[in-house]
Design a protein around this nucleic acid. Structure first.
Lengths: 169, 169
DNA sequence: CTTTACATGTAATCGGTTACATGATTAA
DNA sequence: TTAATCATGTAACCGATTACATGTAAAG
């Protein structure tokens, strides 16, 4: 799964601009995917130059023109290839787990600070994701809800482990 | 958090070879970090050429010589820099969540197969991690245990959501 | 008056993957 | 006899990040 696959999938649902796409990454996708503008725009450019997507320009005043991209038949075929590929296992890089693993090299006070910060960040994320669930849940498909639930439960479980763990230190 | 940080941390605990390090990534680190040989060996080479680590060669018969690396003072300072850097939030790329999100483009039967496969993979991983916990738990620090618990609970929670979810489809 | 949102993009760099190349030993 | 374990490494490529560059409009 890489940026082009996600972008193609989004465009299959609806025409979007690079800016729109990046916003989606920060919202619905925040749990399982992210990518910067420096990845989104070049990816769109490459997809367009290979006719996987097509660009329409909306002239705007006071703002840069908006480039709306739509998926082509060729693009849908490429997305189909992704869907038929084998499902890769989750790829996780957890800096907090790394700090915990090398905890012996950090003094206890600092460790507690790190854990507490992570806890409050996790709390924020859980609230955000739950908010999304109540807001958009009605318009989401069953499987979309499952993906969101995975995100919520991930952060909740991490929160729980950290809260329990901090007691024992 | 990148390969060089993890490697430095491991070498701070104990002298190791590239092969040993990669094995660690597949065991204790499997939940929160992974990296291929094509990353480990070049990273070691770069660290050595900058005097962050030092190489000793163990002559072996019937096998390639083993290169044991140890961390230098300069290397410990570099690792210290990492430990003082701000903790980054977890970086996750979840292909299964992506499939769920774009579930409307997959037929139901295939979707069920995907979910069931993920469930059984998760079960395997939970068993493995729990096995590690019983085996090495005694020799692990409190914070190391927490990091392992985060991994276990992550996979358990995903498992749970998928099992519940599959009922509703 | 400052920040956030809107909106696009490039250049330099980097970190990492994949595939390749080699080969003995041991366990199933 | 086949697969797994031990053990090292390189070359080509790629996907992505960071920092840069620009600018208006609306909201607080």
């Amino acid at each position: 799964m890489q940026a082009k696959d996600v972008i193609l999938g989004l465009l299959k649902k609806k025409d979007m601009s690079g800016y729109d796409i990046k916003k989606r990454f920060e919202e619905e996708f925040s749990f399982f995917f992210d990518s910067s503008y420096g990845s989104v725009y070049p990816t769109l450019k490459k997809l367009e130059s290979n006719q996987y997507i097509h660009k329409k320009t909306l002239i705007q005043e006071g703002k840069p023109n908006k480039h709306l991209f739509s998926i082509t038949k060729k693009g849908e075929e490429l997305f189909e290839c992704y869907l038929e590929s084998e499902v890769k296992r989750d790829n996780i890089r957890s800096d907090i787990c790394m700090r915990l693993y090398f905890g012996e090299f950090i003094n206890k006070k600092q460790m507690l600070t790190i854990i507490k910060n992570t806890i409050s960040q996790n709390e924020k994320t859980v609230h955000q994701l739950e908010h999304m669930y109540t807001l958009y849940g009605g318009n989401m498909s069953d499987t979309q809800k499952i993906s969101l639930e995975i995100g919520i439960e991930y952060h909740k479980s991490q929160l729980q482990v950290l809260q329990d763990g901090i007691q024992k230190l």
